[in-house]
Amino acid sequence: MNKKLLYIVCVVTVILEVVVLKIMHLGHGYFEFEEIPAFGALIGFFGALLIVIVAKSLSKIITKREDYYD
């Protein structure tokens, strides 16, 4: 997996979000908090982080061996 390419894509996305939405004003959000620069990137990062953290901490309780029900 090419990690460098992904880092470049991330940076380009943030730049595009800021340039197109904040400097050129080519869009509007539904809420005020969407006006934060690079909102998509933020919700992507923290949303995924939240999902991973919740899933990992939940797995301490719910993850069992495959023959659990046998």
Partner: peptide, 14 residues
């Protein structure tokens, strides 16, 4: 652009 942001940064977390 929001969707691109969500996609790229979720991949980053992965």
């Amino acid at each position: 652009l929001d969707t691109f942001g969500i996609f790229s940064f979720t991949a980053l977390v992965f």
